[in-house]
Amino acid sequence: MIEFVVPPALIIGVLVATVLPLLVGLVTSTITHPGKRAVLLAVLSAVTGLLSELGAALTDGTTYNLGIGLLTALAAFLTAVGMHFGLYKPTGTDKKLQSIGRHAA
């Protein structure tokens, strides 16, 4: 027997991870060190994963599973990095977001 079940928390985590690089680009400037951006992305990914699992545990009335939370955080980070280097950076989307607000004055 085969069962295909994707937890809603995982779906939400992956969807949020696709926009995390854009969020990091929006809140940092072009002169921000890439290492600082990477740390910010990692922290936001961890928060996404851990909070997604917390939301699932509270909704279902089950015990919080730290392993699933950390695995979701890792998936969110890898998805965000992949989206950044695979889609947003080559198309220039990251530079466009970082330039928002710079010309207003």
Rank of each mutant, 00 (worst) to 15 (best):
M1C: 09
M1Y: 12
M1W: 06
I2T: 15
I2C: 07
I2D: 15
E3K: 10
E3I: 11
E3W: 11
F4E: 10
F4W: 10
V5L: 14
V6T: 13
P8I: 06
A9K: 15
L10A: 14
L10Y: 11
I11G: 04
I12Q: 09
I12M: 03
G13P: 01
G13D: 01
L15M: 15
L15G: 07
L15F: 11
L15Q: 07
A17F: 00
T18L: 15
L20G: 00
P21I: 08
P21D: 03
P21C: 15
P21W: 09
V24R: 08
G25N: 08
L26Y: 13
L26N: 14
V27Q: 06
T28M: 07
S29Q: 03
S29V: 01
T30W: 13
I31M: 15
H33L: 11
G35N: 13
G35I: 15
K36C: 08
R37G: 08
A38Y: 02
V39T: 10
V39W: 08
L40W: 05
L40C: 04
L40K: 00
L41M: 12
L41F: 07
V43L: 02
V43T: 05
V43P: 01
L44F: 07
A46D: 02
V47F: 01
L50Y: 06
L50F: 03
L50Q: 05
L51A: 04
L51K: 04
L51E: 05
L51R: 03
S52M: 08
S52W: 00
S52T: 14
L54F: 05
A56Q: 07
A57D: 13
A57N: 04
T59W: 08
T59M: 12
T59L: 06
D60T: 12
D60L: 08
D60F: 09
G61E: 05
T62L: 07
T63A: 14
Y64H: 04
N65E: 13
N65L: 12
N65F: 07
N65K: 04
G67E: 06
G67M: 06
G67Q: 06
I68L: 15
L70Y: 02
L70N: 06
L70C: 05
L71G: 10
A73H: 00
A73E: 02
A76E: 01
A76D: 00
F77Q: 02
F77D: 08
L78C: 04
T79G: 02
A80R: 02
A80F: 04
V81A: 04
V81H: 05
G82W: 03
G82F: 02
F85P: 06
F85V: 10
L87G: 13
L87I: 13
K89I: 03
P90L: 11
P90Y: 03
P90D: 10
T91M: 14
T91E: 12
G92F: 04
T93K: 06
T93N: 02
D94N: 15
D94C: 08
K95W: 09
K95D: 14
K96V: 15
L97T: 06
L97N: 08
Q98S: 12
I100V: 12
I100T: 11
G101K: 07
R102C: 14
R102N: 09
H103A: 12
H103R: 13
A104L: 15
A105D: 08
A105V: 14
A105P: 12
